[in-house]
């Protein structure tokens, strides 16, 4: 346990919902709207936590356990993420495997909760979610193997700080390829365009949103919060790889990390404003493409 890691952990708990606000503001800017307040996600979570709940008669305890287990998994994942100059709360060899599988835990129970409603729509979303995430997993784990070899480390808190500007200079193509793969994983896992459209209004076209149609009240609040934490975790991973500011001065490193993360949020907003969602049959090609990028990076690293 690294107690200093609790600082960025707490920071993430507080700031993560802001990412959603930044993305939505960016999209509003492109659309020429004023947009929702930057703090809208905070308001939403607060309001949902104060509400009662409606449960479908079809559902069982699995439906009720889903949001809690997802949130617990995300909090666990967050504890494994090193940020800026800080090591993660928990760091050990192969911690990123645990991180990837914690995301898997959250997904597994979200999917089961969706199937628990017996709704065709939620089944559809669940089916798509497991399909795309199964394809995204190799891209993530192979990409991390590539940067792990480049940095000579086996834990995130060893790998990410070792990716300095000097590493970038000597191995720019490799790291850029991994960063590109991680960007695709980031967009896919967080249900953003071009994989999923969080703003869609038609159940038939949703993936993540349709799985949580039946949740309400504090459960929905937990889901919303877990999803912004996921945005933070995968975004943090991407920024950690792509932004090699390692001055050793805690404040500068932390500030550059946060700057990078919110720039990523802006980039996500830009992507969502300038791109259409891919057709569902095209998405596997994108994800396999990301895996290919990771493999290419590995080949370059091995060379």
């Amino acid at each position: 346990m690294n107690l200093e890691g609790l600082v960025p952990f707490a920071l993430a708990l507080v700031l993560a919902p802001l990412l959603l606000g930044v993305i939505n503001r960016t999209k509003a800017f492109f659309a020429g709207r004023r947009g929702a307040p930057l703090l809208q996600a905070y308001y939403d979570v607060a309001k949902l936590l104060r509400k009662g709940a409606v449960f479908s008669r079809t559902t069982t305890w699995v439906f009720r356990a889903g949001p809690i287990l997802s949130l617990a998994a995300m909090l666990g994942g967050l504890a494994l993420l090193p940020v800026g100059g800080f090591p993660a709360v928990v760091a050990f060899e192969g911690d990123f495997v645990l991180l990837a599988y914690l995301l898997g835990v959250a997904r597994f129970f979200t999917v089961l909760a969706a199937l628990d409603t017996g709704s065709a729509f939620e089944g559809m979303g669940a089916s798509r979610d497991v399909t795309f995430s199964a394809l995204a997993e190799p891209a993530l784990l192979l990409g991390l193997a590539a940067v792990g070899r480049e940095a000579g480390g086996l834990s995130l808190s060893g790998i990410l700080p070792a990716l300095t500007a000097a590493t970038w200079l000597s191995a720019a193509p490799q790291i850029a390829l991994v960063a590109a793969a991680l960007l695709v994983v980031f967009l896919a896992e967080n249900a953003r365009v071009p994989v999923d459209d969080p703003d869609t209004h038609l159940e038939l076209t949703m993936i993540h949103e349709v799985m949580i149609l039946d949740h309400s009240g504090p459960d929905l609040g937990a889901i919303l919060y877990a999803s912004v934490l996921k945005l933070w975790i995968l975004g943090g991973l991407l920024v950690g790889v792509a932004l090699p500011v390692r001055t050793g001065t805690v404040l500068i490193d932390l500030a550059s990390f946060l700057g990078g993360l919110f720039a990523l949020a802006v980039l996500t907003g830009v992507i969502e404003s300038t791109m259409a969602r891919l057709r569902l049959v095209r998405i596997p090609q994108l994800l396999v493409g990301a895996t290919t990028l990771s493999i290419l990076a590995l080949i370059l690293v091995l060379r």
Binding site: G52, V54, F55, S56, R57, T58, T117, F121, D214
Partner: peptide, 13 residues
């Protein structure tokens, strides 16, 4: 959180 809130049962959406 849910102990003092109204909880309804309904059909799936």
């Amino acid at each position: 959180l849910l102990s003092r809130r109204p909880i309804h049962e309904s059909v799936t959406w």
